[in-house]
Design a protein around this nucleic acid. Sequence first.
DNA 1: TATGAATGAGAGTTCATTCAT
DNA 2: TATGAATGAACTCTCATTCAT
Lengths: 224, 224, 224, 224
Amino acid sequence: MPAKKLIKEENLSKSAQRRQREREHRYQTILTAAEKLFATEGYHKSSMEQIANASEVSVGAVYFYFKNKEDLIIQLLDEIGYVLRSTLGNAFKKHGPTMEGFKQAGYAFFEDFCVNYPEKCAIIFRESVGNSPELEGRRKKLFEKCTGDVRSALLSVCENQGLKFKGQYSAEVIAVSIMGIYERVAYQYLFWQDASNDIRLIGRDAVGFITGGVNYLLNEISCT
Amino acid sequence: MPAKKLIKEENLSKSAQRRQREREHRYQTILTAAEKLFATEGYHKSSMEQIANASEVSVGAVYFYFKNKEDLIIQLLDEIGYVLRSTLGNAFKKHGPTMEGFKQAGYAFFEDFCVNYPEKCAIIFRESVGNSPELEGRRKKLFEKCTGDVRSALLSVCENQGLKFKGQYSAEVIAVSIMGIYERVAYQYLFWQDASNDIRLIGRDAVGFITGGVNYLLNEISCT
Amino acid sequence: MPAKKLIKEENLSKSAQRRQREREHRYQTILTAAEKLFATEGYHKSSMEQIANASEVSVGAVYFYFKNKEDLIIQLLDEIGYVLRSTLGNAFKKHGPTMEGFKQAGYAFFEDFCVNYPEKCAIIFRESVGNSPELEGRRKKLFEKCTGDVRSALLSVCENQGLKFKGQYSAEVIAVSIMGIYERVAYQYLFWQDASNDIRLIGRDAVGFITGGVNYLLNEISCT
Amino acid sequence: MPAKKLIKEENLSKSAQRRQREREHRYQTILTAAEKLFATEGYHKSSMEQIANASEVSVGAVYFYFKNKEDLIIQLLDEIGYVLRSTLGNAFKKHGPTMEGFKQAGYAFFEDFCVNYPEKCAIIFRESVGNSPELEGRRKKLFEKCTGDVRSALLSVCENQGLKFKGQYSAEVIAVSIMGIYERVAYQYLFWQDASNDIRLIGRDAVGFITGGVNYLLNEISCT
DNA sequence: TATGAATGAGAGTTCATTCAT
DNA sequence: TATGAATGAACTCTCATTCAT
């Protein structure tokens, strides 16, 4: 959201409404241009001037909409987090709290998120790593939300099946591990090899691995 | 290794031998100082002057031993890669190509590498991410070597047990997945939470998860 | 006064009269907000946007009433000059062209102007110093008027008492010196020490010093 | 003094001695160039690039010797303070703690300091006014030292003559007043009128005024 | 070999001013 | 009249790299 807070449309005059729409639009334009640049050129290699040029606005306009360069990537991260969690969450919900739903969420990550938003992948898994403390804090929060989602899903599946995790920390560690698999497999086959075509099979294997691991850690070893 | 190649000690005069030793020593001093700085302050926030100060040499001396700043982190990465692969490889070899060896390698990662070299973890998993193309290429190579190690280990264990992976890409994808688990679990519990004390249990859980996943992907489902 | 010149009220329609009043009011609102901001934050640290916000108008509106930022402080200086000269002039006139009137003007400076308008003091003695040539020119004119006032007062007191200054440049130099005393004593005890409470005694001492100096430079040394 | 502290010459090698001398020299070159630029163009109008060009060094070099732009004017202020206090102090000491010494110090201000260092006057009385809090703090300290000097001189003269000030705060207020006279008379006749030629007479008048005021405030009114 | 002063391109950021609405 | 988004020049500051000594 732009620096200036948005106001409910109904409380505004026609012209103010138009301005507000334009503002939101331009905000998105800049954000999208930045996403592309960060993903292709790298966060540090992209200057604010380049971002301005790519968005076809002046440098000053970028600063009108975003506090500073860091703010740009933070907003990007927030948006990406939203898309990622929605994608996985929706896939999971479609099948209820079942192992199948869990798998489908995994497939959605590879076949939907990675394929449709490779640039968002680049931001979240590469460009936002190891920068400022503020940004790192945001990344941490985002990953913790995702881990939390995975953990909840896991536990609801278990409960649904009347199963329990072995050990104490398990559920969380497993969730973190699963995020790790998603992250690195995406990194490897999206950025390092160009295996976009094989991503379906790769995803199946990775998800199979995850499923196996999960089952192993449940009291009963019933691999569906 | 310094720009000037090293020569076998026996072919050198006494004083030349001493100089050579001093050179190697200074090289290491700088590298260690850089490692610490990069890990604590961040790669981008650490200036060459800071590195020089921390190593108690001049800026010029740093440039005598290393081509440029990028070279520093590349050398660091090489060294870290060596330590990491040795640690895991040795743990694995001790037990022959067995599932037990595989587990021990996993434990070694968490209980040896992560615990003894948190700074190396920071470099390899955080500070070297998403910088220059050259560095990214090195990172790719290093991860591919590790993945290759894991894959080989996996296959040798299989062969030894007369088992086979399901599917086609499996072995490699599984290896990448395992590296992903190592990476993210380390990142989460080393940098984001300070769970150094619980790292043993955490590692056990993660390795358990890995083992389970591996077994699942083998024809026979025998979880040891 | 606003860019658009004011027209005599009687020649205007009712609604035009209202608009004109509003205009004058808004003009003053902005000027007052700017005075406060300049005095507390500093001229250079206060942005036009801040001034607009503080006056509860838009940036554009500020530019409607004032040519530019410099114009703001110039108008302020004019207004301050008017208040300052009135304050001193009135105090002096009350007592006729006598040494007593002269003293009273001095007391008025410390006990009236400084105490009631510390922000005006900040503008005239601090914030308007050493900026643009145009502003410096205005400052010069203002100080020359004040100096002129003091000089006239001095001379009228002399004439009234049948006295004459020693030397040639005297009257003007003395006037400048007196202004210097006013300025620096105000600066010291208003901005650097917070001696608002003691300002009366401080003013008495300063005026005593002035009176003594003046008497010394008159042919007869009669300290009243 | 440069950022890097200076070391006693005797503890350095020949070449290090030379480097140190060069460093001090360049430091002064930059400072002098900045003084001139600030005095003629104004502090805010002088960019670091201009200063670098005027000193015939690179921008980076300026930052090697000075922390930032503010540091430049602060160092300048310190130096100016030293020169000013020496000039006045020496003149006073030559004549012992007498009224004559006091006068001579005044003459020295106008005929020595103002005439020989008009640029230092511009910095101390114009360009350093109303900038950052840090700078303002330095200015305050400098003026307090000067005021303290004047006050001490005043008191020693009194003591010497067996006289006493009337009132309570007097000595300090008088000292501040005297500084105000110096400041504004210099400002008026140096920057606003070009009365360099008449400065001698002007100074005499101003000092006469001061002397008169001082005498008035002493118990006995004996104007020497 | 070693030093550290010097370079200068390049970055992020600010803000007085303009102008379409 | 009034708005406030947009402009873009200008500024301060950083820092990897070089090179005379």
